[in-house]
Simulated scan of single mutants.
Amino acid sequence: MTEASKIEKANALAKEVFLANLGLAGKVFEQSQDLFKQTEAKLKETESKCKDAYSKRNEFFDSLVVRGEKVQSDAVSKFESSKTQLTSKIEGSKSTAIAKFNDSKAQALAKFEELKSESNAAVEGQLKTLREGFDKVKSKVSRGTAEVSEVVVEATAS
């Protein structure tokens, strides 16, 4: 190979390397353009979502308020239901307690009356025994007074 052909080959190779670098730069530029377009599209999509979310914030807030009102309503309803059930149970227990108390009271009064009758009967029996004893003493005292009177009359008559 001659020197001119070597230079020509080196120039061709240099030109190819230059063109390859130029092609690489073009390819990088194209890919960066595609990446830029993709990023720009995603940015626009994100911006659109943000705008939608921003425009729907009042709607979202209102839906949260409605949900909060429902939760509150459900809680109050459950509370009222529990309160009603508890009040019903308390009233039932109260009625049962009053009924038991009245039964106990009636039994106590009946027992008191029974004991009172027994006590009155016992007192009447004691009074009867005392009266009989008193009548015996009275009749003995009366007989004794009659005998003393006879003795006094006999003594004064003599």
Rank of each mutant, 00 (worst) to 15 (best):
V28M: 11
V17Q: 11
S63P: 02
K44L: 00
S81Q: 15
K78M: 13
E8P: 00
N21Q: 15
S104K: 12
E69I: 01
K70Q: 10
E59Y: 02
L109G: 01
A41I: 02
T129C: 09
S93M: 10
E150K: 04
S81G: 04
G68Q: 03
L86G: 07
Q31D: 14
K37V: 01
S63Y: 01
A106Q: 06
R57V: 10
K78A: 14
K44M: 01
Q85A: 14
V141N: 03
K78Y: 04
S117N: 05
E124V: 08
T96G: 00
E16V: 02
E47G: 01
V71F: 11
A4E: 07
S5L: 15
K27L: 08
L130M: 12
L22Y: 10
K70S: 05
L35H: 02
T2R: 09
N58Y: 08
K9H: 12
G68N: 01
E47V: 00
A4G: 05
F79R: 15
V66Y: 01
G68D: 01
G133Y: 09
A12I: 02
A99E: 11
C50N: 12
V137D: 11
N58K: 11
T46M: 14
Y54N: 08
A97C: 08
K51R: 07
V65E: 03
A146P: 03
K15H: 06
E16T: 04
A97I: 02
K105D: 13
K128I: 00
S93D: 10
N120D: 10
S95K: 09
K105I: 00
N102C: 10
Q85F: 14
